[in-house]
Amino acid sequence: MSTQKKIEQEEFEPNIIGFLCNWCSYAGADLAGTSRIQYPPNVKIIKVMCSGRVNPMYIINAFQQGADGVLVSGCHPGDCHYTHGNYLARRRIATMKKLLEFLGIESDRVRMTWVSAAEGRKYADVVREVTDDIKKLGPMTKFRREKEW
């Protein structure tokens, strides 16, 4: 890798949108904070009531508005506050990831994970991994919305 390219890659700070469910993952992220675990600041969190609330079009919309990656995180299977929201989300995200890959958009830009309220450490690890992954993939500009007035 040329030095120039390397510098560019190092400088690229990805913009990642994280949809975290209110009952587990958001609390997990909170725990990571209160436990003072260090992790990259690239994930911008949007709290949703349940991972099942994440319409796969949110992901497309995030990409349109300048996100380089999207993280969807919910309670572990069986633990969803609404009993099966995360199972529904799992099917949807699985299908959307396949569709994106087929269109020529790296499916690794969409990451799904289960983080419980007790897993502050896991949340920090996930954020670190996603940030690294997206850094490697570079900016996502394939169908970004053009600048508006």
């Binding site: 299977p77 069986g78 099966h84 199972y87 529904l88 799992r90 099917r91 949807r92 995200i93 699985a94 299908t95 990831k97 499916s107 799904m112 994970t113 289960w114 996930v126």
Partner: peptide, 15 residues
Amino acid sequence: FLGSFRPDDPEDFIS
């Protein structure tokens, strides 16, 4: 399809 699930649906993409 999108309104149902099976507990053992594939989840190898989740970590």
